[in-house]
Simulated assay, not measured.
Amino acid sequence: MNRTRSATLALVVALALVTGCSGGTDRQADVAARGAAVMPFDLERTTHRFTKADTGGVQTVVADDPTDTGQIDPIRQHLRTETDRFSRGDYTDPGRIHGDDMPGLAALRTGAARITVTYQDIPAGGQITYTTADPALVTALHAWFDAQVTDHGPHAEHG
């Protein structure tokens, strides 16, 4: 782990201990700590948004300050990498952050060939679009989105 990630992880853990995760849960503090080791951007300076659609959904991550290239560039790089992995059924990073028993995750792994996963730069960040004609996979995506919003607490929202 590089020094920046180590420092970020230490800060997240310290803040969680001192503030009780600002009204969040112990699980949210654990997820934030694990997320700091996986995601190369600062959760405190970014927002995840999960928007459900009839054919899947859209996941966005944006810097809270639209001029913060120190967050925008790592967001885009991370989401591009994750798009490639997700399209191959590799959901290792969400499993590391949220746990392998995360709702919807097993179905997304096994059904990856039936999900189109695309990336696009957007102002202040990036977005991943998930599209499928399989109703069971739409349900899995929605459950996965809901779990992420719950687990990320104040750093995530429904679209």
Rank of each mutant, 00 (worst) to 15 (best):
T4R: 15
T4E: 14
S6N: 09
S6H: 08
T8F: 12
T8E: 14
A10H: 15
L11Y: 15
V12W: 15
A16D: 15
A16C: 14
A16F: 14
V18Q: 14
C21M: 15
S22D: 11
T25G: 04
R27I: 07
R27N: 09
Q28A: 12
Q28N: 12
D30R: 13
A32C: 15
G35H: 10
V38D: 10
V38W: 13
P40F: 10
F41I: 01
E44M: 04
T46S: 07
R49Y: 05
D54H: 05
G56Q: 02
G57Q: 02
V58P: 02
Q59W: 01
V62M: 03
A63W: 00
D65S: 03
G70T: 09
Q71M: 05
I75R: 02
Q77W: 08
Q77F: 08
L79A: 01
R80Y: 03
E82D: 06
R85P: 00
F86C: 06
S87Y: 11
G89L: 10
G89C: 12
D101K: 00
P103F: 06
T110W: 08
A113G: 02
I115P: 08
T116K: 08
T118L: 06
T118E: 13
Q120K: 00
D121W: 01
I122H: 04
I122A: 02
A124I: 00
A124G: 06
G125H: 00
G126T: 00
Q127R: 01
T129S: 11
Y130S: 07
